[in-house]
């Protein structure tokens, strides 16, 4: 009886699984179909007449400049996440260990920023970035550090509060200054939080569309900007190129996921519980 029951559950889960994979499969299949057959019959397998080989991929790569968009996305994501991890962990340690009115205010300002939606600061932030010459990929890293600081400082602070201060004092007595104490003692202890912060920010920045579009969109393309670019002025879309580019943008995400799956799942759970 009981065995029977778990068989039904297994089949049910398999069905749900198929539902989850179905959209990706359809996109993959259509990326090999000639563009005129995609919208009309998206659920039919490509046949001799509708099969387009790799032409959608060649078309799409030429139209969007996908490879340079990939490099831009990679550069911005890696540098921003690196900056966020390094600087917010230092800040969190400082404002948790040095207690005065100013650090307290700073902490609450960071926490407050977490509930403010992007649209609230969208227009003024873009203007500020223009005035300060931050409207380039390097400047965007500064913007991401500033806008992403709230959650990251909050998470690192939560962790620092749990580190016994005696460990740091011992390092100081042994002659370490604050910088060596932080990098040799505190930062290595923070590793679990560092992974969580890095994962959460990677997922955000890699997929972010509006912020990079408004700040650097006129000169540079990230992957989401390149995809959105395929939608023409009047909403007309080259479906062939679109399908191919969707496939190409999913591939790096899936590879990243399969490589660091354990960290990602742990990271999002830890991030959710603390955030």
């Amino acid at each position: 009886m009981k065995k029977h029951y778990s068989k039904i559950i297994f089949i049910l889960l398999l069905a749900v699984c198929a539902l989850f994979l179905f959209p990706v499969f359809i996109v993959l299949m259509n990326s090999f179909k000639s563009k005129f057959y995609i919208s009309a019959e998206p659920f039919k397998l490509p046949t001799g007449e509708t099969f387009a080989g790799l032409s959608n991929y060649i078309d799409g790569l030429a139209k969007t400049g996908f490879f340079s968009a990939f490099i831009t996305s990679l550069f911005i994501t890696v540098c921003s996440v690196g900056a966020i991890v390094l600087f917010t962990s230092m800040t969190a340690w400082y404002i948790t260990r040095v207690k005065n009115r100013f650090t307290k205010f700073t902490y609450y300002a960071f926490v407050f920023s977490m509930v403010v939606p992007f649209q609230m600061v969208m227009f003024t932030m873009v203007k500020t970035a223009n005035v300060l010459n931050l409207d380039n990929p390097w400047g965007l890293i500064v913007i991401y550090l500033g806008f992403g600081a709230g959650l990251s400082v909050f998470m690192f602070s939560g962790f620092v509060k749990g580190i016994p201060i005696e460990i740091e004092e011992a390092a100081m007595i042994d002659g370490c200054g604050p910088i060596r104490t932080f990098f040799l003692v505190v930062f290595p202890l923070m590793k679990p939080t560092t992974i969580t912060v890095a994962i959460i920010n990677t997922m955000w920045i890699w997929n972010d569309y509006l912020l990079p579009y408004l700040v650097i969109g006129s000169d540079y393309k990230t992957i989401p900007i390149a995809i959105q670019y395929l939608r023409g002025g009047y909403g007309s879309i080259d479906m062939g190129a679109m399908m191919a580019m969707l496939v190409l943008s999913i591939i790096p995400v899936v590879i990243f996921y399969l490589l660091c799956q354990k960290h990602i799942i742990k990271g999002v759970v830890a991030g959710a519980v603390k955030g």
Partner: peptide, 25 residues
Amino acid sequence: NLKKYYPIFALPTTAAFTVAFLFPF
């Protein structure tokens, strides 16, 4: 001792935060 290290530890984040969030807000 640590307090004097504000420019190294807290300034970069706080400055970026001011530019990207506090001032625009």
